[in-house]
């Protein structure tokens, strides 16, 4: 199987290096820093979900935050209603499925209806805003599902952490759990994009009409990949909710919807590793800035975004990967198997 032979290039070296670093990181830092990094990791899934559907499938979505919210709220309502800690892993799995299902239904209506490109962006934007608006007005006591109040703008508090049997995943354990999930998802996605389905997604991204004439049921593939992206975003929301024990409408709102777009675009949307790395950099940077009380953080971020699109439209991290390939791996054709990714 030539597909399983891994290529030596900057992306893979950095990717492996990053995971090694993340695995030994807790040995050197305080529990507070571990907690922070757990948060970063939970948000990486959200960027990966957009990188998958936008970078590979060519579907531009502002809806990932909505699926994030669906996951987080579902997990909260499900686990808090049951009240049994051993049910939390089931809540996690069900939540991922529900997120995928909701995305699949929305995707079905859009893609079978012939909606594409920026219109998908606009519709998903509307969906996200509606969900945020809806959740924010659920403060009253009539907004209850089972015993759990939706809490309006303040959201739901006291969401239980994930427990394996009677063993609750907290602090370092939660960190390692979420890190292993990330590793599995990351490898899964890397394998996915060189699979048959992955190639189909790339073909659809490059030219929808041509792909149809090659015999592909394009709306079906778009719906499937959109559902997969929704499931990933939902996973992100669930991990976020268990991390902090709370879920609010604004975490699933408009600002949250645009952030993955920005992160994927700035890092390099056609490259999962780049999107992941840039997400870490962004969260580290913004937390450092806001910890120092810097009100210019958002201004700097906005300016950085504009400069990236104007001057390195492929994405910063991807451009660095290419530079690295040219310097260290002497690949005359660094771009030659663009679509094949790592496992050539």
């Amino acid at each position: 199987m030539r597909n399983l032979k891994m290529k030596l290039n900057t992306e893979n070296v950095i990717g492996i290096g990053l995971f090694l670093f993340l695995f030994i990181y807790p040995l050197f830092v305080t529990p507070y820093q571990i907690l922070n990094l757990s948060y970063f990791i939970s948000m990486v899934f959200l960027t990966l979900s957009l990188s998958l559907i936008w970078g590979y499938g060519g579907i531009f979505s502002f809806g990932q935050a909505a699926f994030f919210g669906v996951g987080g709220y579902f997990y909260a309502i499900f686990t808090m209603n049951s009240g049994i800690s051993t049910i939390t892993p089931i809540g996690l799995l069900l939540g991922v499925l529900v997120g995928g299902l909701v995305a699949g239904i929305i995707g079905y209506f859009m893609f079978y209806g012939g909606i594409n490109d920026v219109f998908v962006g606009l519709i998903t934007l509307c969906i996200t805003v509606s969900l945020e608006t809806f959740m924010a007005q659920t403060a009253g006591s009539q907004w209850k599902i089972g015993t759990v109040g939706l809490g309006g703008y303040n959201g739901i508090n006291g969401i239980p952490t994930i427990s394996l049997g009677s063993f609750a995943l907290a602090d370092v354990n939660f960190y390692y759990f979420i890190l292993i999930v990330l590793l599995v998802v990351y490898i899964g996605l890397r394998l996915f994009v060189v699979s048959r389905f992955g190639y189909t997604a790339i073909a659809i991204r490059e030219n929808r009409e041509r792909t149809k004439l090659l015999g592909y049921n394009v709306p079906r593939f778009q719906t499937l990949i959109f559902a997969l992206g929704g499931a990933l975003a939902s996973l992100s929301g669930i991990l976020y909710a268990t991390w902090g024990g709370y879920m609010t409408p604004s975490a699933a709102g408009l600002t949250a919807a645009t952030l993955p777009v920005v992160l994927a675009a700035a890092g390099g949307r056609k490259n999962l590793t780049a999107a992941m790395i840039f997400t870490f950099i962004y969260y580290w940077f913004s937390q450092t800035l806001s910890a120092s009380g810097n009100e210019y953080a958002l201004v700097i971020l906005g300016a950085a975004l504009i400069l990236v699109i104007l001057f390195v439209p492929e994405g910063i991290i991807v451009s660095l990967f290419k530079l690295g390939d040219n310097l260290f791996f002497n690949r005359k054709k660094a771009t030659q198997v663009k679509a094949e990714g790592e496992f050539t």
Binding site: Y199, I202, A203, E206, N207, R210, Q336, V337, K338, A339, E340
Partner: peptide, 9 residues
């Protein structure tokens, strides 16, 4: 053809 991709792709 898919111009951004390789012949093999």
């Amino acid at each position: 053809v898919f111009g951004e991709l390789s012949v093999y792709d």
